[in-house]
Design a protein around this nucleic acid. Sequence first.
DNA 1: CACTTGACCTGTCCGC
DNA 2: TGCGGACAGGTCAAGT
Length: 289
Amino acid sequence: MPELPEVETVRLGLQRLLPSKRIASVWFDTEKSFPNATADVESFLIGAQITNVERRAKVLIINLSTDYSLLVHLKMTGQLVFVGKERFGAGHPNDSLINPLPDKSTRVSLDLGDAVLYFNDQRKFGWVRLLPTVEIPNIDFMKKLGPEPLSSDINAKLFHERLARRVGTTIKAALLDQSVIAGVGNIYADESLWAAQIHPATRVRDLSEQQTSLLFTELQAVLRLSIEKGGSSDRNYVNAEGKKGSYISFAKVFRREGQACPRCGSTIEKTRVAGRGTHVCTTCQKEPV
DNA sequence: CACTTGACCTGTCCGC
DNA sequence: TGCGGACAGGTCAAGT
């Protein structure tokens, strides 16, 4: 669920809260939550100061003063929540959180002296990794990523060229392919395809340059709007302060099956494309023949 | 090689 | 009310 706008919202919050904090202690439940973590992971982290927080695709990068970085992937149900310790005091109910932390989904926690950073993940798909900062671009995950859709590294023409890597598949599968363009997931794939009036099952080779250009424009627009609204909170997603985003109420088709299409009034349908639940208005988005 | 499907997990929801 | 099964979706491995 956390896609680019949700991860970016978390980043904005953490960038405001974390810099200059020093790691006092580290806890993690199992090695799966912290791959390659060994006993001495603590020696790499304790005493390190957080310098800044970056994002690449759906991955958060917490840079440390020691030239190491913590990488966090939230996958579907991950959360990264900052909680000030004053909230634990008697008479200070933890009112900004839906539930008090830690809870049974907590996988990793970093004690920051006057606050705690919790990595929670109900479904245990997410991970935290510790790497030398200079090594980040060299790991397989990063090497495969396409350009950031909101950066100057991409434009409509380049988008069209990158889609050409996947001409035989559906446009929805191509949008979800992180090597084509980074950070798009199921919500923004469906939303941008509706906005561009392209059926998700359309083969990439059948799209004109005019269509992919419009899709690119609409993709950027939905991503920007969602960041402005603090992301989509469908189920688990919360920002760095444990609060939900509001984009989902602005969504035109996602999770709106059975409702009227905001453009033409036809009923929005839910189908399956590229193995994912897919929301479509078949009046506005003509099915491929 | 290009592309699709299943596995990884757990909580929630739906039908019986 | 309890219970089984489908479903949610990011990414990688395995299959076609």
